[in-house]
Simulated assay, not measured.
Amino acid sequence: MKIILAIFCGLIVLFAGGCALLLVSGSGYNGMFQSLPVAAIPGGIAALNVLVLLALFSARTPQVWAFHVLAVIDVLVILVLAAMWLSFGLKDSEINVLGSVLLGGLAIKAVLTVLTARRIT
């Protein structure tokens, strides 16, 4: 359970951290301060996942609030992705496969995050 959650958190750190870096560096010097609030969202998600990874491998004292906030964010992302998936329609098989994999992975991550937070406390 711990290893699977660590894999999911590592993937999210790579993706969200990369998105935040692209938002900051890709905007150029003039637009950098305009994209900082937008880049703070994936940067904050990456930071929460890093806190969870540090707590999983006992590199830092567990911050239980980080687990709960991350689980709530995962559920919110699941709801947004489900709404997007339903708006695209269920007729396209490629979108159905992508949607089911993303929603399933995030649901497993949210459940594992809550279970690990309960185990730590």
Rank of each mutant, 00 (worst) to 15 (best):
I41R: 09
C9T: 01
M84T: 11
V24T: 12
I78V: 11
L22D: 06
P37S: 01
Q34S: 13
V24A: 12
A20S: 12
V97H: 07
N96D: 15
P62E: 11
I45F: 14
I7K: 10
I120H: 07
R118A: 01
I108L: 15
L112E: 01
M84I: 15
A110D: 08
A82T: 12
F67K: 08
N30L: 14
L23A: 06
G10I: 07
V13D: 03
K109V: 08
T113L: 05
Y29N: 06
V97W: 08
F57N: 03
T116F: 03
G31M: 09
A71Q: 07
C9Y: 00
L54E: 00
D92A: 13
D74P: 02
L98N: 09
L106N: 10
S87V: 06
L36K: 03
A83E: 06
I4L: 05
T61A: 14
A110L: 09
L112V: 04
L79F: 05
F15E: 04
R118L: 14
L51M: 13
A66V: 06
A40G: 04
S93H: 12
H68V: 15
G43L: 07
V64K: 15
L90D: 09
P62W: 05
K91T: 10
H68R: 08
A82D: 00
A47D: 02
W85D: 15
V64R: 09
Q63T: 10
A6E: 04
V69L: 14
Q34Y: 07
I73L: 14
L5N: 03
R118N: 10
S27I: 00
A55C: 01
L90T: 14
T113G: 03
Q63S: 13
I41L: 10
L51K: 11
A39L: 08
M84H: 14
S27D: 07
I7W: 10
H68A: 02
E94P: 04
L53I: 02
W65K: 11
G31P: 00
T121K: 11
A107F: 15
L48E: 05
L11M: 12
L21F: 10
R60N: 05
L86T: 10
I4S: 06
L36H: 08
A40T: 03
L76Q: 03
A39C: 14
R119N: 10
C9F: 00
